[in-house]
Amino acid sequence: MKQISLTLAACLVGTVAFAAEIAPKDVGYDEDGAVAASLSGAAGDAASGALLVGDKSKGNCVACHQVTALSDVPFHGEIGPALDGAGSRWSEAELRGLVANAKMTFDGTMMPAFYKVDGFIRPGDAYTGEAGTEPLPPILTAQEIEDVVAFLATLKED
């Protein structure tokens, strides 16, 4: 009995989380590319976000952007603008849209979409070079996007 109720409780928690999460194909972008609601239904954690932005196998944002707050992470790229002050330039909703799919804000931008799962040319299975099957897993999960957004929001202009 005890075990059954535990399982049941786990299911319920799972269902709640699922119901609140917005799937990649259901994200609502406004005409400027912003996304109002949290993708996971929960708040983001800026500390986790900082790790994701620097992690090669996750956001790898520093491949293209300089971020002074992450100067302990080696090798920042110069493809996009420095993210310093991004939290002052953009609202939370705009940042969410930028990370989920920057092409909704900047038409044709080189910045990859981190919460997009299909419509690719020759979709691959991560970095193996082998074919992948759409829908692919998004590069970042809903909660990871929220964490990255929370981190970006801390990058204020001084």
Partner: peptide, 25 residues
């Protein structure tokens, strides 16, 4: 000029538009 894969990048994105820039290391 075709933008392939989940990152949607073409040869031109890196080697025409961004040569001279650092991409990570």
């Amino acid at each position: 000029y075709t933008r392939t894969g989940q990152l949607e990048l073409s040869c031109a994105n890196c080697h025409e538009d961004n040569y001279g820039n650092m991409i990570r290391a």
